[in-house]
Write a protein that binds this DNA or RNA. Structure first.
Lengths: 288, 288
DNA sequence: AAATAAATGGAAAATATGTTCCACGGGTGC
DNA sequence: GCACCCGTGGAACATATTTTCCATTTATTT
């Protein structure tokens, strides 16, 4: 109990003082936070190597936080672990959870956990059922396009936003059809042969998206649809259709699988366009 | 993978030979079985004491099972742990191999699969490491806010967009600080006491986001940060900080965990506000 | 730009830890 | 009952790991 919080307290202190720390010690701090769970089994040398610093820097770090040396600090994490690993803990925790549930208030984390679980299942399904041929076709279509238009409204707008952002890292001209100022049609006007439209839509399908797809097809642009089913109105108006089935919990639809698919699409495209990943997402000042 | 089974194999061998062992070594065996999970952090002396034997008995035990000494046997358990504690590491190595093997055309689906895998691991980690207390605090902070401002730039903008969209289904007034027309400051101007700001940012942190956080705090609004670490500049300017560590493949950062966390946050909030899910996300004509 | 302070990394010193050796004792078989 | 063997534990030894020290580099201030 107290053991666990001692490690927590230390991590908090580290977070507080972080900015005042010299470069190398910041590196150590980052490593500790990242690998908190395995610090207890690692040697100073291993941690030093992982953090890219000299062993003595790790010792200095520990001393800066009031310990006589690394060993003493490590003991804090070791104790925290053994306290948690001891069989009594899980039992007590289960009991406590049950008690807390009795009060009628479902803890927020309970809801979150279930939702995350649902999302995981969604990703599992995505991994299992991805259509190789179609995915390849989708990548090829984008690779061959001069201009790429992206549309998605309401729930799908965030996804469209992301795709448009990601594609800015390629040489393509990218157009997010946002409808800003009520200008859906105007933003789409100049799409034509050699261009591609990415349309993301789920039932009940937004009429703006459907319009865009029809318009794009009429003007000989390739249409890539991202939706949940081969049936439905999007199939008719698309050249390639990628399916995503989202997991759901509390009757609330996830969006993680869609996001994941879109990112995968982008990575595959970047790879095909032979952008090195560094070019793709500069770790410099433009990334956030 | 193989690491885990090596420890298992050892435990099996111990079980088999158990009866043929001398009294003290049986004691060691019992202790190991009982405390399997914490062997990796314990010293020979501790284990010896726990089993009620002399340290050298423990060493003899290890040698009896083919190891040069206790250390070598302990390493088996340590490896088993680190293999399971940091699955992403072995994963990253696989990824690197794939990249280095670019002996020609890697099929797009191959890339997609890898990426989806990475995202899945990200979600696993999210589920495992979500901080109950903080999550609850985050939900409470939002539930208590009159106005909710949302900011995220570049990579994080899509997420901000989504949160703003989702929150429109509550009774709160929601403001997406988009920076449209260069009006970051202006959009943020009226934030004040009783309001909340949700800031999503990852390194290198966008200065607009940092500015917004500082401004919000100065005006006594609650600040909820969504980022990847307790360290870094966001910690100082936030009241609640939710951590998300994204999986990555091809050195390309995922966004699915963040998306998932934000959705979970929203669902938990909706639940707390006692919105029925039907009210929350009408499946009617406004959903897309 | 010089002076001062701080940070860094190599290597020696100190310590902790693991391992081996050996003397002792109890039990078993002859 | 004696001798032998195996198991046991103390202590010396060896090794691995941590810690300290100091020379060098790097940043900061005047």
């Amino acid at each position: 109990m107290a053991k666990r919080s001692e490690a927590d307290a230390l991590m908090n202190r580290i977070a507080e003082e972080f900015e005042a720390l010299p470069r190398q010690l910041q590196g150590v701090a980052r490593y500790l936070e990242e690998h908190r769970s395995s610090i207890m089994v690692q040697r100073v040398g291993e941690i030093a190597e992982g953090a890219g610093v000299h062993a003595s820097a790790v010792v200095r770090f520990a001393q800066r936080f009031g310990y006589t040396g690394f060993s003493e600090m490590q003991a804090v994490f070791r104790d925290a672990f053994t306290a948690q690993a001891s069989p009594s803990r899980s039992y007590k925790q289960r009991i406590r959870t049950v008690i807390e549930n009795r009060t009628g208030v479902v803890p927020a984390v309970e809801i979150a956990s279930r939702f995350i679980d649902a999302s995981r299942m969604g990703l599992d399904e995505l991994a299992a059922e991805i259509d190789e041929t179609r995915f390849q076709k989708a990548v090829d279509a984008l690779a061959g396009a001069e201009n790429i238009y992206v549309i998605g409204v309401r729930r799908s707008f965030a996804i469209a936003t992301y795709i448009a952002y990601a594609l800015q890292h390629t040489q393509k001209r990218v157009h997010l059809v946002s409808g800003l100022g009520g200008m859906f049609r105007e933003q789409l006007r100049s799409i034509g042969k050699g261009d591609a439209l990415i349309a993301i839509s789920f039932p009940p399908f937004g009429k703006e998206t459907l319009y865009a797809m029809r318009y794009a097809q009429q003007h000989q642009a390739k249409v890539l649809a991202i939706t949940e089913s081969d049936l439905g109105p999007l199939a008719r108006h698309s050249d390639v259709l990628l399916k995503v089935k989202e997991g759901s919990a509390f009757a609330f639809r996830g969006l993680t699988s869609t996001m994941c698919l879109c990112q995968a699409l982008f990575v595959a495209l970047a790879y095909k366009l032979e952008l090195t990943v560094e070019e793709t997402l500069p770790r410099g000042e433009y990334d956030d």
